[in-house]
Design a protein around this nucleic acid. Structure first.
Lengths: 211, 211
DNA sequence: CTAAAACTTTTAGTCTACAAAAAATTTTGC
DNA sequence: GCAAAATTTTTTGTAGACTAAAAGTTTTAG
């Protein structure tokens, strides 16, 4: 077969093991929730020793972080495809942004698992975790900020508002609602979407439209 | 001595132990951070057995929750004293609210400990924790909402904005910044206060004042 | 083909949260 | 005072995260 690549067998095996570990972890986490799952169990399903899992990911949270990072790349792609350039109003922009993120989150992991993600991102126990998660937040916020800039250019945002500041404020706002969404299994996406719409309309009362 | 109270000796002893446990926990948590401290250590300093700590508070997070609940009551009092009725502008209201909360937080616990609090409140591992913390949030948000209502009554809030929705949005906004404040030991209160001011001014550009 | 390098696995062990039950102590109602 | 009730402590034990080091295996360079 055509393998004249500079990728050694060793590297490929490592990739393979990594993939097997994250796949096993995703499956088990979603099936039973992070705390119910032991590293041993992940290792067994992945077909490696538990020590290998530790060598690769350091801690259980480390494995979780890898899952989040994976789903991340995809989310940015989805946003580029389904959001960028489309909305023509600020409220609409934030609502769509939020909707895409919620849908994406549930597609990839469980609410119970996301709770652990958010929890770990702020706990400070795993400094690497917090840092990585924060970087994701930055990338997401930047998507929103650039869209706000676009809307400002076409006059949909008051000239007196700084686009970056507004972008961050809107990001934080929707993020608060995202956490609320994740926090309870009983909250329905539409319900929370309404909350967010209420937030936005209370903060930015739309000027009376003229026919 | 004048003790014709219905309070039995037993109850008082229990109160005493409780107080000793929370005091020991506060001291140790602030000294070394939640994860470094074992229940044994708390029990030893409090002069009880570790099993008693479990009987009283269930888990280590349970002890933490008790600390938060304590500081809570005080915070509501402080808000009533130093905030309610004072600010005459929305931006000012939120900024003061935020400042009081930040100061109060640092007066009582460490950033590292607050990280654990926030982390536990969302992790879902200790359902009681999440619920209690959420109730505090509600009480705090209500303070803000009532102040927004007051400002609306004197025309400082557009009549088209719903006071409850606006209050919640503002609360969520400042809470996001609070989490950011807590998340890193390097963030200075004034720095984060500036961020929050930027948020507010971008969202609610003040109408040109007339002389 | 072989020796060295690079990994992984095995093994053995530490630490801490948390549980359950037996034992000891203390308070209280009388 | 004393028996009963309540509660704490002691004891014993489990489980799982995480670590260090020895042993074994596989890849790779020459």
């Amino acid at each position: 077969m055509s393998e004249a690549r500079p990728i050694s067998l060793r590297e490929r095996q490592k990739e393979d093991r990594r993939a097997r570990i994250t796949a096993a972890a995703r499956r088990l986490f979603v099936e039973a929730g992070l705390e119910k799952i032991t590293i041993e169990a992940i290792a067994e399903i992945a077909g490696v020793s538990s020590v290998t899992v530790y060598n690769y990911y350091g801690t259980k949270s480390g494995v979780l972080l890898a899952l989040v990072a994976e789903s991340d790349r995809e989310l940015l792609g989805t946003l580029a495809r389904d959001l960028i350039g489309k909305p023509q109003e600020v409220v609409d922009l934030v609502l769509r942004f939020f909707e895409i993120i919620c849908r994406h989150a549930l597609d990839h992991l469980d609410k119970a698992v996301w709770r652990q993600v958010i929890s770990a991102s702020v706990s400070g126990t795993e400094p690497r975790f917090g840092k990585s998660y924060h970087e994701l937040d930055n990338r997401l916020a930047n998507v929103l900020i650039r869209e706000v800039e676009r809307l400002k250019a076409i006059g949909k945002v008051p000239a007196t508002s700084d686009a970056t500041h507004l972008g961050w404020a809107l990001f934080n706002l929707q993020n608060a609602r995202f956490v609320e969404f994740i926090a309870s299994d009983d909250v329905h996406p539409n319900q929370i979407l309404r909350h967010l719409r209420n937030d936005l309309e209370a903060l930015m009362p739309r000027p009376a439209p003229r026919d």
